[in-house]
Every structure is written in C-alpha cells, then in structure tokens.
Write a protein that binds this DNA or RNA. Sequence first.
DNA 1: GCGACAG
DNA 2: ATCTTGTCGC
Length: 223
Amino acid sequence: MEVRVPHEWPSGAAAAEAIQDRLRPLLELDVPGPAAPRTVAGLDVSYADDGRLAAAVVVLDGTTLDVVEESVAAGTAAFPYVPGLFAFRELPALVDALRALKTVPDLLVCDGFGVAHPRRFGLACHLGVLTGLPCLGVGKTAFVGAYAPPGPRRGDTSPLVDGGEVVGRVLRTQDGVKPVFVSVGHRTDLDTACRNVLDLCPRYRLPETTRRADRLSRDALTA
DNA sequence: GCGACAG
DNA sequence: ATCTTGTCGC
C-alpha cells in the first residue's frame, strides 16, 4: 500500500517535537470509525541485543480473525527512546513493512498510544496521518492521564483523563485481567475504537492483531 | 525543583 | 523493548 513519506528526519528532540506539532492539525478526530472493518492490521516491533529491530504487520480478517497477509521489515533503531517521542524509533521500519503490503487495511492497531500523549500525537496518530487510514492505539501500561480502575468484567471501562480532557479509555478485555489503554489515533472515535479492540480480544488480554505481530516480529529477529 | 515516563 | 523458571489455574 501507499504510505506518505515521513518527513525530513529530526536531528534531535526539539525537531521531533516540532514535527509532531506540525502534523497534529492533520488529524481527523471525532469522525465515525469503521464499526465492522473487513481487515484489521496489527503492528509491532521487536529489538535485538545490538540495535537491530524487526517491524511486523499482520493483516487479519475483521470477522474471522484469520491471517490475510503478513509483512516484516528489518531495520535499526532510528531514534533514542524518549517518552513522548517513541514513534520516531519505530516509524521507518513500520512504514517499510506497511509499504510492502498488498492489502489496504480498514483499520490499523498500534502498540502504544494515539492522542493519549503529552502533545496529543502518539504513534497511532503519526501512523494514521502517514497512511490516511483509521488508526487506534492500545497501550499495556499507563503513560499520561489519570483514571479509576474499571470494573472487573470484560468490557468494563473507565475514562482516561489528562489536562481536563478525556484522551482515552481504560478497557478490561477479559474478566479479571489487567486492563489495556485505548486511545484514538486518526479517523475514528473512542466508542468504535474500544468496540474494535474488544472484538479483537476474544480470548486474551491483548488484541489478536498485536499478539500476531509481536510473534512475527520476534521470529523475524531470530531467523 | 524532583521524579515519573508508551516500547 | 529485553534480561528469565517454575508454577498456579482452566
């Protein structure tokens, strides 16, 4: 599929933040997301001991969750890990993997956050703008925002609030497991995003998209 | 000012 | 992210 060229690569933190600020106005938020996506792509990156990394994209049938297509791209950490600038670390390799895709997914599911970010422009926002596709983020641990623990049952949620605004939702994807943090990235709304994530979690805490991409990227690193 | 901080 | 065994539970 086609992916917009990222931009001139930032030389440092200040330049990276400037890029986020420049792209943020391009976000399309509060628009209805895909309630029943035909295909959903999961993205993840694994790291080796030496700085090598492997980015993986796995496209699943939105209904059966069967694998439709897979793509892997090898690369190198493109930026140091800085909370808030995490996207710049994995973006180049993820874009490579996406470009190799024959399928154009109806929805992208990222490891990390969307607008639940200090400058409201996390990885899911960045990938959304670059691809023009509906995109959401699923985080495993809290980053920004305050929240109350959601109820103990699958589907229970509580709002994630930062700076006086709701930036995401804490979602329990299975009875009694630790909740995940869902936030909108691009071209979708929070209700649809949470519905999508729940649909992608028929059995485990993390979405099948994420689990599949994680496994693929890890295997690619070994092989 | 200090600490905390997605993966 | 990654370093890491057994163990409890369905």
